[in-house]
């Protein structure tokens, strides 16, 4: 069997995809973060505030 790759692909760059990418990248894996749209951020970037702290989502 061929050698294992040290890269991971993450599809969807919302908050979940971003967190998975950051954990992997900070653990020394190479990450390809793919999104269909021109921008990362997903649904969370379209929110105003978040519960239960009412912090600004952006």
């Amino acid at each position: 069997m061929a050698d294992k790759s040290g890269s991971v692909m993450v599809l969807g760059a919302g908050i979940a995809g971003m967190q998975a990418s950051l954990d992997l990248a900070n653990s020394d894996y190479n990450v390809y973060l793919v999104d269909k749209t021109p921008t990362i951020g997903g649904m969370m970037a379209r929110l105003d505030k978040t519960f239960p702290t009412n912090d600004c989502a952006m």
Binding site: M9, L11, A13, M18, S21, L22, L24, A25, N26, D28, Y29, N30, V31, Y32, L33, V34, D35, K36, T37, P38, T39, I40
Partner: peptide
């Protein structure tokens, strides 16, 4: 994410 050297962003793309 944008600045991380271990993350390659591939936008406008699908599997």
């Amino acid at each position: 994410v944008g600045r991380h050297t271990n993350i390659n962003l591939i936008t406008n793309s699908e599997i």
